[in-house]
Each structure stands twice: as C-alpha cells, then as structure tokens.
Design a protein around this nucleic acid. Structure first.
Lengths: 177, 177
DNA sequence: GTCTATATTGTGATAGAC
DNA sequence: GTCTATCACAATATAGAC
C-alpha cells in the first residue's frame, strides 16, 4: 500500500473513533510512524485528507440520491440500496457527518449537501408526497433501515448476512406502511 | 435569569449548533457580553458547563432506562415515553452525544453510559429476548421513534402535535412488529 | 463579578536541510 | 520523502487588581 493510501486508512479509523476535530495531524503521523511535517508532503492540509476520505462515499450517496430522484425505484429497491450503502460506509458516515465542522465544509464544497441528498431519498420513500405525515413516516423508515443495519453489523462482526439484510429491509418497509 | 442560568442557555444553544469541541469559552463569553475569565467565576471549567447542561436530560434518560429494566411497561408505553423524552432534549442530545470527547467524559463519570441506557431500552423493546433478530428489530424501532419525532418537530416548528405523536408511535410499533 | 494580563498547551502549517 | 526547527494562533485556565 502506498503512503497516501496508508494515511487515508489511518485517518479513516481515527476520525471514526475520535471524530475529525478530535484527531490531530500528529495523531495520524504517530500512527504512521513519521513526523507531522511528513504528512504535508502527501496532503496539503488536514481538510484535504478529509476530502480524500469522503470523496468516494459521498459520490456513492449522491448517486443513490439521484436514482431516488429519478423515481424509477420501488421503496424496497431504494431501502435495499440504502442498506447496502450503509454497510459500505459504516465506520465513517455516522461520526464524521455529525461533526458540525465537517458538515459546514461539505455544505460549501458540494453541489448538494448530505442533508439535501437524504431529503431526496426520504422524499422518494414518501412517493414524492409533500404531506408532512408521509415525510415523517418516510424519515422514520429511513432511520429504521440505517440503525437496523448498524445493529445487524454489530451482531455480525461487521458483515451483514443475507438473512439480516432481509430482516432489516422488512422492518423498514413495515415502518413505511 | 441569573448569570449561571444565562451561561447554560447560551452554551446549550452553541453546543447544539457547533458541537462541544467547536464551541470555545470565548464564544460563550462573547454571546454573554463578558470576557472569558468572567465565566470561570461561575463554572470552574468548560467541562463543568457541559456537566451542568447534561445533568437533567441524563437523569431523565437514566430514569427511562430504569423503568424499561423493570419490565413493567408495554412497548407502546416505552416508545411513547421515549418520544416525549426526545422532544424535551431535541436540540442537545443528538449533537452532543455524538461528540467522542463528550462520550468519553460521560462514560467515565456516569454509573451507566448513554449507550448502556439505550441498550436497556432496546432490550425491553425486544421483550428481553437476547436473540439478535429481535434486538436488531428493536433498535430499528427505537431509531424510527427518534428520527420520526425529529421529523415531526421540524414540521411542527419545534412542537409535537398529539396527531403527529400518534403517527410516530404507530410507525415505531409497526416497525417493531 | 468582572476586568487585564498572562501562563501554558495544543494544533495546523511552513521553511529549508538531508 | 522525511527530517528538525519554528511560526502563528487559538484555546483552557489562572493570578491578582478593581
């Protein structure tokens, strides 16, 4: 593994465990076995490391939101895709996207903020209804899928069995009504 | 309002908006119209301010977990109480409890960590079953109640109407199966 | 109760040698 | 590519005057 990728792997883990603000360049450098200055050869700033880590998950999320907007997916397909996305990004998204500093950065750098993308998915789950009641239920179902997946990953040592995937999907669909 | 309470009100809002780490003593002091040093007359440290803010919500949460452990509540009663708790602590709990620095402090200061209390409630929702499938569904229902309530509060300008409360409760119960 | 002044530490980041 | 040395700054916190 080249150094840039190593840095990302370490930063990913530390950001997930301690948060973005709670992790210093020195923390990452220590884990890698170099001095902080060495990191600046590979990435021009701490925020640049964050960007590199989030680029792929955010692109996948944007893609999911785009498919949701198209209206060509059933609720089951949409929730299933969201469950799979949650599995792939489990360590990172919850911790990092809850850091206000990170959110502010993403809001000014992305065409659509993560919150807007979530809205697109939730709106599609509500069958594009603008009625508050449908949107409340859709957001509850979205949360059920996310946290149900997280719970299943906890019990499955980090992997989601097909059986548990079915269970979580059925639970979220039940919530959706 | 006395100064101590004013400080808490300001800190509560800033912590909710910018996170604990993202808010400095200087930020709070500026909002109050004094110098940072003045705050140290009222609270011995920034963590002390945090403790004062969280004491009441955490006690309420611990009480809810205790009632869950007693096994004397139905799933509907438990979820209803959790929805009401979520309404009362809406600004604070999500942001603050997702800051790793805050979590670490709470873990070492409380008899039961917030995560343990959540487990107690989720276990009760699973009817004290230790089967992973039941616990996964229970956690999904718990999340549906939480985020459904948050969505309803968004649409209701910060208040939860009886109608929306019924809706969220029904949605979470449906997820629970 | 609040101020000024300051100690102290941590952090992101740069310059320049090797 | 990595180092040493260092800067600039922000943050928590304290001392002591008013």
């Amino acid at each position: 593994m080249d150094t840039k990728a190593q840095i990302l792997a370490i930063a990913r883990e530390l950001f997930a465990r301690q948060g973005y603000r709670g992790t210093s360049i020195a923390d990452i450098a220590r884990e890698l076995g170099v001095t902080p200055a060495a990191l600046y050869y590979h990435y021009i700033s701490k925020a640049d490391v964050l960007d590199a880590i989030l680029a792929e998950p955010l692109a996948a999320y944007a893609d999911l939101a785009e498919r949701a907007r198209s209206g060509r997916l059933t609720a089951a397909e949409l929730l299933g895709a969201f469950i799979d996305f949650t599995v792939e990004t489990r360590q990172l998204m919850p911790v990092v996207s809850s850091d206000p500093a990170v959110r502010a950065r993403l809001d000014e750098r992305l065409p659509h903020s993560p919150a807007e993308m979530a809205d697109a998915i939730i709106s599609a789950l509500a069958a594009s209804s603008t009625e508050p009641k449908r949107l409340i239920v859709a957001r509850a179902a979205y949360a059920a899928a996310k946290d149900g997946t997280a719970a299943a990953l906890d019990f499955g040592s980090g992997t989601l069995s097909p059986e548990h995937r079915k269970l979580v999907l059925a639970t979220a669909l039940r919530a959706l009504g």
